[in-house]
Nucleic acid binder design. Sequence first.
DNA 1: CAGTAACCGAGACGGTACGTCTTGTCTTCCT
DNA 2: AGGAAGACAAGACGTACCGTCTCGGTTACTG
Lengths: 191, 191, 191, 191
Amino acid sequence: MLVSEHRRGPVRSEAARVAILEATARLFQTRGYDQLTMEGIAAEAHVGKQTIYRWWPSKGALVADCLLEGLLFREGFSPADTGDLRADLIAWLRGILAFVDREGGVSMVHSLIAAAGDHPSVGLRLSEGLGANQLLRARFESAVAAGQLSPDRPLDELGDAFVGAVVLRALSRTPTDAGTAVRLVDAVLGA
Amino acid sequence: MLVSEHRRGPVRSEAARVAILEATARLFQTRGYDQLTMEGIAAEAHVGKQTIYRWWPSKGALVADCLLEGLLFREGFSPADTGDLRADLIAWLRGILAFVDREGGVSMVHSLIAAAGDHPSVGLRLSEGLGANQLLRARFESAVAAGQLSPDRPLDELGDAFVGAVVLRALSRTPTDAGTAVRLVDAVLGA
Amino acid sequence: MLVSEHRRGPVRSEAARVAILEATARLFQTRGYDQLTMEGIAAEAHVGKQTIYRWWPSKGALVADCLLEGLLFREGFSPADTGDLRADLIAWLRGILAFVDREGGVSMVHSLIAAAGDHPSVGLRLSEGLGANQLLRARFESAVAAGQLSPDRPLDELGDAFVGAVVLRALSRTPTDAGTAVRLVDAVLGA
Amino acid sequence: MLVSEHRRGPVRSEAARVAILEATARLFQTRGYDQLTMEGIAAEAHVGKQTIYRWWPSKGALVADCLLEGLLFREGFSPADTGDLRADLIAWLRGILAFVDREGGVSMVHSLIAAAGDHPSVGLRLSEGLGANQLLRARFESAVAAGQLSPDRPLDELGDAFVGAVVLRALSRTPTDAGTAVRLVDAVLGA
DNA sequence: CAGTAACCGAGACGGTACGTCTTGTCTTCCT
DNA sequence: AGGAAGACAAGACGTACCGTCTCGGTTACTG
């Protein structure tokens, strides 16, 4: 006895889905989140507006999906493991800060923060994108194993502290200098 | 003989200025930053739109001014100094997290984050409003003097780490539990 | 027993055809021509849109078919033949004007006029539906035979004049009074 | 005794009003009523859509205003007064029928009928535009004075009968031949 | 004390984008 | 193959705000 609940009619068009996400990513990167419009995306993707609204409730959800598909963050910021936690974290933070300071980096982060305001999962992905949380946590665990980090430190919160500080700088547009990464690591880890 | 550069005509109306800021604060608190519109503010303040645009360039600037006037944040979050740094920080964080979790707190913080995206100084004021930076720094200095905190730790960055972690939680709407404050303090300070 | 003429494959579904026409009539009468949509008809008839487009080119054609099937006009307005042409015409016109003035009558006629704009045959059917042209012409012929109407009057055009005047009133929403029918008959026929 | 109740603020822009009406007339004549869109009018008039909606509630009202301004009907169809009522009416009807049959004439009338469906006053103006009602009535009065027309005939309804018959022909797209005007006059007036 | 320049409220203006609706075509599965 | 369901591209709908400009009317300094 089969019956298997079945829908009739055409199925979601993968071509349209991809075109929409790619158009969104393209426009997000070139114009930023605020300038991103549903109409612009529809035009760029050669798609009817209704096709967007059928599958995504909002601009934020669309950007969140782009993040999930990895269309916005090409680069991952994974901390190296040279055995020296402090050096590795400094290097990792410098990478992130360089990205943020780079042409378009600030506005990129700002756009993501704005998008996070509209859609919760963007915030989660933002942490992961910047901090590569899993990798960061792995690095911390390695440091704990090596005796460089007290096992008492809650590692997720430790990651949040670093990533949060970076986000806060971006929010307040505090300029970064050469020593910023070092100071931040020393502040949190102790010198 | 100083020609005394002088303007003719009436001078800026204090009544209008105050009405606009108060209308902005009122609408910001009830509807949030996104729902805040220049037209709405003008109507609420019984003021012409031009009177707003004459003195403020943007919605963000208006909100920033509200912050400066103390119309948005009634409460300050100042850490106590009982001699026990860890306990004081935990208490302070709990206060902030309770505020954020409270009815309307999340959206308040989100609105401020959104406003910060539009206007840099909102970001600065946000840090200060949440973290009361001066006070926090003072508490850290007291801890250094008491030998509870290594003098090597850059104190500004230490504050950023705490406030940043809170902002990050708000951004990703990560739910808070009873242990969050403790874990965050232990993560950053060491247990 | 004449099975005769058989196509293979499924043949046009009579059930669908009828369901579509009835849905159209139902919606036309309740919502009017402007509110009538292909999507609405398809939904009301539990039919795919394509099934409509396969057999009818437009909304107007659909309404025209409804008229042909007699699904829109239940009532016919046939002039009586009491021997008194003037009285018969006045009675007949009063019936039509009462229908038009009645609840929903104006919008009914307006909808038909709109449909006539989209599809020529609706216009023809409109004349017939309102004026019952054949019957009206028969009444005129009877009057000619009775010597009440000059044989020189072109009878089709005479009918058009009456029906046209009614349509024009509907178009301009000129209100009707008790004497309208009398005046119209006297205007055209002479008192 | 001063203080006459006064509105403050800018006054309605005559330039915009005229541009909108002229754009409407232009598009109405070239594309017809159905193809006429508010967006198209706004674009053609170089005007924001809101400026249209601020002053006109609908497309029909806009077309009605165009009629009132005389932007749609250049030509008036005024019956001559040669002393021969029948000949004058035939000539007048031939002019109208020629206009309707002419390139674009049918669609023009159809468009006006459609517009009349949307907006009552278009219907009134339609009668006037086609029938020049005042002038027609004046011609009838002259005929009554000359003893060519019974004083018992209600003259307004007489005009309606003629104009209505023409509208009805346009609605049903009944083709016109050389004798149409003659037959119509004879039908209504008697030979 | 008249002139005049900048303020004020109100709100119309040209625009952009919104989210919804309908059209007519296309695609998929089911009977 | 025909029919139901419904996704698709297109584009009009009417609304909400944007930031600018234009009105009269109202100060308050200047000559």
